[in-house]
Nucleic acid binder design. Structure first.
Length: 276
DNA sequence: AACTTTGCCAACCGCGCCCGG
DNA sequence: TCCGGGCGCGGTTGGCAAAGT
């Protein structure tokens, strides 16, 4: 069926997302990253299709968008997901399924790709280890399920309650075995545990968390250019301080980083600088 | 030390949705 | 209302690094 669609699409002359000839693929170089960062910081995000041409990149727009959203965005967090974030992902997945972008929207600084990868490589295994089906979030133990007369939806909420309860009980725990092997750095997210604790204990907040389309936590960096009176993008106001860092010599500036936003942006730019 | 296997993650692919003409 | 272009999303893959033999 899918192949049929492809055949029809190709027969109808479906245009490729980009001109395959002369379009580079594969890993991005530091030089390409620099070009893309400079362009986005200068012009904001608009019309990805035009970005490669305007930025002087031999990439398709799609590739540029992916590179920016998954790797170059200044608000991205680095490193493994914390226990609290992991728990949030599990709970959100139980509600939303594989809608990674929706899940990612509730975890500022994390991308859908990152969460998807983390789910497939870590969380899936953990859940299976715990005897929980990572797809349905139901227990894999047939006997247990047969004794349990509740509907799948009810069971799902029970699973959620268990997860939430575990968070409340243990602060960070979802799997004691995993906890015993996790590094102190990973377990040092006391603030996040407290945050989760307070969130989970607030029923109305939890409900709004599942139902609202707005992110649970504020998006730190909305790089989408906001039109002010239909004219200049307000985005430039938000990041004008970053425009001065185009050569990545950020330490030459007398930054007084008072916010996580700025420190995250600095980390990203610093990383980029090291790679150059 | 050399080779193989496994794990991880960045990047690609293709489909579906949305919006403007 | 229809059509086509562009973008976003989710699934999949390729390649590198670490671990195992």
């Amino acid at each position: 069926m899918a192949s049929l669609k492809v055949c029809i699409a190709s027969a109808m002359g479906r245009q490729p997302c980009c001109d395959k000839l002369g379009v580079k693929k594969g890993p991005w170089t530091a030089e390409e990253d620099k070009k893309l960062i400079n362009f986005i910081l200068t012009n904001g995000q608009c019309c990805w299709r035009a970005v490669p041409k305007l930025a002087g990149l031999r990439r398709c727009g799609k590739s540029c968008r992916l590179r920016w959203t998954n790797y170059l965005r200044p608000d991205l967090k680095r490193g493994l997901l914390t226990q609290a974030e992991e728990q949030l992902v599990i709970d959100l997945h139980a509600r939303l399924g594989n809608r990674w972008s929706k899940i990612a929207a509730r975890l500022p600084g994390r991308t859908d790709n990152e969460i998807k990868n983390h789910w497939n490589t870590h969380i899936k295994k953990k859940l299976l280890k715990m005897g929980i089906d990572p797809v349905t979030h139901e227990t894999l133990n047939k006997e247990a399920t047969s004794q349990n007369s509740s509907s799948p939806a009810e069971h799902l909420s029970q699973v959620d309650n268990i997860n939430i309860h575990q968070v409340k009980e243990n602060g960070v725990a979802i799997n004691s075995e995993e906890n015993s092997t996790s590094s102190p750095a990973e377990n040092s997210s006391g603030e996040e545990s407290l945050l989760m604790d307070s969130i989970c204990s607030d029923v109305s907040l939890m409900n709004s968390m599942w139902l609202d389309e707005t992110p649970l936590m504020d998006t730190l960096w909305d790089t989408t250019p906001k039109l002010e009176n239909g004219n200049l993008p307000m985005w430039e106001d938000n990041c004008s301080w970053l425009l001065d860092c185009q050569d990545f010599g950020i330490h030459d500036f007398d930054f007084n980083c008072s916010s996580e936003i700025e420190s995250n942006a600095l980390q990203t730019l610093d990383l980029a600088r090291k790679e150059l």
